[in-house]
Design a protein around this nucleic acid. Structure first.
Lengths: 233, 233
DNA sequence: GCTTTGCAACTGTGATCCCAGTTTTATGGC
DNA sequence: GCCATAAAACTGGGATCACAGTTGCAAAGC
């Protein structure tokens, strides 16, 4: 066991930078990022004490952060059992995908109507393509997330962004499942095509095409997952 | 100060019935219901210790429940200040309303397509009209919520229902603001008309009309709030 | 009478201990 | 060797204490 709090054992990120002035916020960000990036897989188990030691804090901030994630449906915490990353059945994943398409394609339409600045949008798309060409899966995942949420922010609807975030927390562990480098690369390549159509439509204010392109992006990624026999049921 | 835990002081509801086998779940339900029913108004302040004494539990379950509500945007908890019910500005309320219309009217369309059983649906509507005629505001609010979520459940989309629930937690304190008996009654009467159109459309599988009726219900209630000068900005 | 200042009460946050279930591991019986 | 069984390790939930900011009230100064 480690000594008292803040033992500086091997905590990955010191609470100093980017810390939301609260240990709970920091822990929330760390676990949230692990979910969104696919570092946590469906069914993965974690314990409060284990995470506490790992992150170099006591169990209290861990509990609070886990509770918040659980409230958003990103984690499952059964009465006296280990905290787990939810395992979605096929129909649950389909339901999630349907809602993602409905909300995120709408967000794309709103963004197109509001108008977007070309430079940062193209830069975000370029960062994704660049990570793709350099074959860096992890940074491609980050760039993909950044591009999508850049669009959602342009919809100028905080509520919508929040709802989409909640769905991403649920979908992250499944969408970013590492199914081998080959398939991941081809999936990202398909995504790049959707992105190109999306960006072009957004810049010319074509709400309908932007909406359709984003829907296609989500749909094809989901179909890829469903085509493999990964999800139960 | 009360004695030790479970002091049986004046706790409103004993943790025994309907308790989700966890004090936190019970506290969550209680506060959630207070938000949805308008018992809590925007800007209302509450303290962990105050709630703990009031509900007859220690601060721990209160903290967990508050944290979960805050994660869903239903409560605001600033670093070292009192927990408050969020005060939405006009534009924030408009944004929330727009998203509610987009999601809830879609849910109504899905419910119409799935088909609904006539008896329980008509019963739910009747309970609202009955509470209305008996002039019982509180039970009209409950019946209204029950009717709406009866429809959303029929959409058979757990994710959608969850997202809608989150938005109701945000809107509850504003929508159910007590602006005097007269205006509340006329607002509920207007709602009854929308409900009639909604129920009829649902039962004949008319997705478009059902969607439109629900959108109108939300829109008119929101316009009523906006017409008064209650929200800041 | 009005402003300013300081102290006291109150706020959420975090740490630590304890408890009652769960899960796993090892042990004993066959 | 295999299965039932018990004990040890581990799980989250809750209570309590300590702490550092915030808020508000009251007394002092002018």
């Amino acid at each position: 066991m480690l000594g008292s709090q803040n033992d500086m054992g091997q905590m990955p990120e010191p609470p100093a930078p980017s810390d939301g002035s609260s240990l709970t916020a920091h822990v929330y960000d760390v676990i949230s990022e692990m979910l969104l990036s696919g570092a946590l897989k469906p069914g993965d188990r974690m314990s409060l004490r284990g995470l506490a030691e790992q992150l170099g804090v006591s169990v209290m901030p861990i509990r609070a952060a886990i509770g918040r994630l659980a409230a958003r449906g990103a984690l499952t915490v059964e009465p006296k059992r280990a905290v787990t990353v939810p395992v979605l059945r096929r129909d649950e994943f389909r339901d999630l995908t349907r809602n993602r398409i409905h909300l995120e394609s709408w967000a794309a339409a709103l963004a197109a109507q509001s108008g977007m600045e070309a430079v940062p949008l193209r830069a975000a798309e370029q960062r994704f393509r660049s990570a793709l060409s350099r074959d860096e899966a992890a940074s491609a995942v980050r760039a993909n997330k950044a591009l999508h949420f850049h669009v959602y922010a342009a919809a100028r609807s905080p509520v919508l962004t929040e709802l989409v975030t909640i769905m991403w927390l649920k979908a992250g562990p499944i969408i970013n499942l590492d199914l081998g480098e080959r398939s991941r690369r081809s999936r990202h390549a398909a995504s790049a095509e959707s992105h190109a159509r999306l960006v072009a439509a957004l810049l010319r204010g074509d709400a309908e095409t932007a909406s359709e392109a984003l829907a296609h992006d989500i749909h094809s990624a989901a179909e890829f997952i469903l085509s493999r026999d990964i999800l139960p049921d």
